[in-house]
Design a protein around this nucleic acid. Structure first.
Length: 571
RNA sequence: CGGGGCGUAGCGCAGCCUGGUUAGCGCGCCUGCCUUGGGAGCAGGAGGUCGUAGGUUCGAAUCCUACCGCCCCGACCA
């Protein structure tokens, strides 16, 4: 491609709207153009990067036995009512009526549509297994779109759906996708981890997330330094030490703690450590108040709480609300005599003679014990894991890091097929629901994640498999016939050898071309300029390593092909 | 939706507090000269409903009200 013939509007300054590095660089490198919040046009250069990802995804999906199809973005509400998600999905599902006042929506995902296809087309166990995928634009009316392509409302996603005869068979399909995903992210040159995940609103029995490691990630993941364990923090199980020697239970005592409401000030005042204090937090779970008890220095993990209560939404109650419900100001709340549902973190349940709020302004209590002094409605793992907790698998040391979720695989089971009456006839003649799995990859997000992971102060540094162009040829002597002819010749020869080349034939000064080449992140830069005139040489620079070498033009094509192959082998 | 911030030329910003006649700067863009290995220089030029609507005032980018949009922090997710 000739620079002069494409739309590649690079920016010297960063638009004020961009906060994170991938968004800034995408804007500056002419990737995308914002239409409105969370909705972007993909300009030619950005689209080329997206196509690179798509093609790798396609190859690996096909290799894993999945078949591509394309489903509609506009979907009838009826289908969603069948699965029960029309009510459940919430405002993220963009709903509208067509001219006939038929309720419709924009597909945020395609379980319903694909299940409808399969239930109409497949009827026998002999048709199974089958795995169908598409690469398509999704629309989710996100509460807060942000960071450019990282969390758009409109975004490109690869979604695949597997249908199997049994749970065991479904597990094989799941495993195939799991392996395919690992190959995809490896081939794209990304540093990622696979983690156990919460299955969220899609529902299902188990699931894994594929996280690209990057500081700007929206999720925190924990992984073990000694074994293979890795999990989303929301999901990471806390392992408690079981065989603690129970102290003898001491007598309950109330004590005055005037004006001491915060954990730290209470502990200081009483001369105790935070590990001896238990805090009582009130949460609203689908509108109902629940008291949650965790140790003073712990954080409640809301996802765990939500799952325990089976609630659609949990939210910490505000101080006012807490007072209305319990009659106690926050800071003095305790479980003893509290008349709302009480759930207790497992760690607290193992404690004896601890301190809590006195359920009265300016009072706390000591020597409190579960069962004797109050009843727990449930005991469960409710707190966030910390890096000082042991690995739940092997007891080893844990590490935490931020990650960007680029892929998610779910084993769905028969939830959708049952609610939508998607059945097949098994060997034994019995009608059974399909056992399903679904598998997503955020294609546009992946490009953003790749940039988060591969850049420097001068711009993007594309891994070769994702680079829109592998080589950029700079013509630094537009008015010099020898230079121009050489640049054109190298451009032609490389293209003929199947290398994707961008020829910078703009009437710009060398400095501008160098800056743009760095910004665009094309892996190899070929410079044809004054060294050709002086000594008959052209220059090759590796964007990642910064290594520059000069050579005679005749060697260039072969040398580049070798270098490109070497970069791909590194992946 | 709650909390915070911003809307002035394509991009980055100043001006607003303390209202005043042709609204400014840098970059980019156009023309010419000149220059050509890390975003050159000189000269000339184009480009603005100051987010929208209403109000206060002799007079509003500036003060007041409402609305709209965008960004950031939280709940959601690929």
């Amino acid at each position: 491609m000739r620079y002069s013939e494409t739309l590649l509007p690079t920016l010297r300054e960063t638009p004020a709207e961009a906060e994170i590095v991938s968004h800034r660089l995408m804007l500056r490198a002419g990737f995308i153009h914002k239409l409105t919040s969370g909705i972007y046009s993909y300009l030619p250069y950005g689209l080329a990067a997206i196509r690179k990802v798509e093609n790798i995804v396609r190859e690996e999906m096909d290799r894993a036995g999945a078949r591509e199809l394309l489903m509609p973005m506009v979907q009838p509400a009826d289908l969603w009512k069948e699965s029960g998600r029309y009510e459940k999905y919430g405002p993220e599902l963009l709903r509208f009526n067509d001219r006939h006042e038929r309720e419709s929506c924009l597909g945020p995902t395609h379980e319903e549509v694909v299940t409808d296809i399969v239930r109409k087309a497949l009827h026998s166990y002999r048709d199974l297994p089958v795995n169908l995928y598409q690469i398509q634009t999704k629309f989710r009316d996100e509460i807060r779109p942000r960071f450019g392509l990282m969390r758009g409302r409109e975004f490109i996603m690869k979604d695949a759906y597997s249908f199997d005869v049994s749970d065991d068979a479904a597990e094989i399909s799941y495993r195939k996708m799991y392996d395919a995903y690992k190959r995809i992210f490896s081939r794209c040159g990304l540093d990622f981890r696979v983690v156990q995940a919460d299955s969220g609103t899609i529902g299902g029995s188990f699931s894994h997330e594929f996280m690209v490691l990057a500081e700007t990630g929206e999720d925190t993941i924990v992984f073990c330094r000694e074994c293979e364990y890795a999990a989303n923090m929301e999901k990471a199980e806390v392992r408690t030490e079981e065989n603690r020697q129970p102290d003898s239970l001491a007598g309950l005592e109330k004590m005055e703690t005037p004006g001491k409401r915060k954990v730290n000030t209470v502990c200081e005042f009483l001369g105790i450590s935070v590990e001896q204090l238990v805090k009582t937090m009130v949460y609203m779970a689908d509108g109902k108040a629940v008291a949650v008890l965790v140790r003073g220095d712990r954080q409640v993990e809301e996802v765990k709480l939500k799952n325990l209560l089976g609630a659609a939404e949990v939210e910490m109650a505000e101080g006012k609300q807490v007072y209305e419900i319990t009659g106690v100001p926050t800071g003095y709340l305790g479980p003893v005599g509290l008349n709302i549902k009480i759930v207790v973190d497992q760690e607290v349940a193992a404690m004896t003679n601890f301190y809590v709020g006195g359920n009265e302004k300016n009072y706390h209590m000591k020597n409190v014990n579960v069962s004797r002094d109050f009843q727990a409605d449930a005991v469960a793992d409710l707190r966030q894991i910390t890096s000082s907790d042991p690995c739940p698998e092997c007891g080893g040391a844990l590490e935490m890091t931020e990650g960007i979720e680029v892929g998610h695989v779910f084993k769905l089971g028969t939830g959708y097929s049952e609610s939508m009456q998607a059945m097949f006839q098994d060997k034994d003649g019995v009608e059974k629901p399909f056992v399903m799995g679904c598998y997503g990859i955020g294609v546009s997000r992946m490009v953003a994640a790749a940039i988060e992971q591969n850049h420097d102060e001068n711009g993007i540094i594309f891994p070769v498999p994702l680079a829109p162009y592998t080589v950029i040829v700079l013509n630094l002597g537009l008015k010099d016939q020898a230079i121009t002819e050489m640049a054109e010749r190298l451009y032609r020869e490389l293209s003929e050898r199947g290398v994707e080349v961008l020829l910078d034939d703009r009437d710009e000064r060398p400095g501008a071309k160098f800056k743009d080449a760095d910004l665009l992140g094309i892996p190899f830069r070929v410079t044809v300029g004054k060294s050709l005139t002086k000594s008959g040489l052209v220059e090759v620079k590796n964007r990642k390593s910064g290594v520059t070498e000069e050579m005679v033009p005749e060697q260039l094509v072969a040398a580049l092909l070798t270098k490109i192959a070497a970069e791909i082998d590194l992946q």
